[in-house]
Structure formats: C-alpha cells, structure tokens
C-alpha cells in the first residue's frame, strides 16, 4: 500500500535576524490510508508547524514531502492551493467558520475554489446538506456560527473539511476550545469518520484525545520522540 503522506528528513528553520531557530529536525514518517494519527508533544515542540507543512500552508526548509504521490516541494502557490482544496480538509482549534456565512455557506466554501459548472452547484448543495445531516446538524443549515454552540461549530467545520472529499483530514487541536462533553462528541465523530476509512491526522496536547487515536507520534524539540500504535 502506498502512503498518503510520506515525509523524508523534513526540516524547518525560522530565521529572525541572525538567529536561526530549528523548529523541525529530520522528521521522517509515513501515514497510510485509513490511519488515525495523533501528534502530541509539549508546546513549542513543533507540532503545529508540522501540521501546517502537512497542510501545504508552509514549505519545509529541506526534505521531501509527498502528498498522495505528489512531491509538494515543486509546486507553485496555485498548485499548493489546488492540493489543499482537493486533497486536504482542515479542522481548527477555534473552528474558524466565517461569521457572516450560514452553516451551509461555510460548508460550501471549499467548492468556490474548485472548477465546476452550473450543474455542479445543485449537486454540491445537496452534498453539503447531506454532510451537515451526517454530522448531526440537519436542522441548522441556515444558522450563523454565532447561533451555534462550540461543539456544533466544530461539526460544521468538520463538515466543511469533508466537503471536497479529501484524502486526509488535518485537525489542529480540534477539541482545544470545547468542554469535555462536546470534546467527547467531536472525538467520537472523528473516530466514526475514521471507521469509514477516512485518514485523519490530528495535533493535540490532551492525552485523553491522543489515546483515542490508533497511532501516536510524540514530538519533542522538533524531533520524533516516539511513534507507536495505541493500545
């Protein structure tokens, strides 16, 4: 089986003046389709940086990153954007729904950046409604984010991440802004999606969330400290 994500000796440096900070050092690992991977580590260990490199929003300083067989390093801004649009779905800690858009409009946003004719529009709208239904918001298509609870917002965000049927869902502290009940619900939803074959990589520093994954990668000081299946 070919990996969806494959990293080989990935490094990331930040320069500020003459001081170079090595955030990631020689990271090598692969993620295979259907995996649920949690990346954990103390603050400042570089896990968010890693996630945004995986998300094609940042470029590594060196090393090779292949996403679904495509070497990301060679791509232009347009190419990276297309990759984000078609192969990746993002879920953020603070939900990051657009406050002026309804739940449905938020879920449809990724389709704006995809080629599609008039015929597509209707199908996309139906699909968006199906997904919202599936995450349990069938009654709230036209609610604005401000009218939804934190858990509900994160469900909309997950629905949005699913909209373009991505290869991988990348979640950055998806439960970080939620109470434990809502947090459990979101984790359950992510596991359910994984159960249906969806590949998910999530960053968290909540051990309870980490334990729910099938594989746990721990990062310390920019290096992989451990990489093991969860019991």
């Amino acid at each position: 089986m070919t990996p969806v994500i494959s990293l080989d000796s990935l490094t990331k440096h930040y320069k500020s003046g003459k001081i170079v900070t090595e955030v990631l050092k020689e990271i090598t690992f692969s993620v295979f389709p259907g995996e649920l991977v949690a990346i954990m580590g103390p603050s400042g260990a570089g896990k968010s940086t890693l996630l945004y490199i995986l998300g094609c929003l940042a470029r590594p300083t060196s090393g090779v990153y292949q996403l679904d067989g495509v070497a990301v390093g060679d791509l232009s801004d347009e190419g990276l954007s297309r990759l984000r649009n078609t192969k990746l779905g993002f879920v953020f800690q603070s939900f990051h729904l657009i406050p002026q858009y309804t739940a449905l409009e938020n879920v449809l946003l990724p389709t704006v950046y995809r080629k599609g004719g008039k015929k597509e529009k209707k199908r996309e709208s139906l699909r968006a409604k199906d997904i919202l239904d599936m995450v349990g918001l069938g009654e709230r298509f036209h609610y604005l984010p401000g009218e939804l609870s934190g858990g509900q917002k994160q469900r909309v965000a997950i629905a949005r991440a699913l909209m373009n049927d991505p290869e991988v869902i990348l979640a950055d502290e998806p439960t970080g802004n939620l109470d434990s009940k809502q947090s459990d619900e979101i984790v359950r939803l992510l596991k359910e999606l994984n159960g249906r074959g969806r590949t998910i990589v999530l960053v968290t520093h909540d051990p309870e969330v980490g334990q729910q994954a099938r594989r746990l990668i721990t990062i310390r000081d920019g290096k992989i400290y451990s990489d093991a299946p969860c019991s």
Partner: peptide
C-alpha cells in the same frame, strides 16, 4: 485576515 487565512486553507490561491 482570519477570513483570508481560512479561505487560503480551504484552497484559495493568492490570486483567488
């Protein structure tokens, strides 16, 4: 800015 960031993450290029 946040809205722009979100749109970029969802696949908007700089040009978009």
């Amino acid at each position: 800015r946040v809205e722009i960031g979100i749109k970029r993450a969802l696949g908007a290029s700089r040009r978009d």
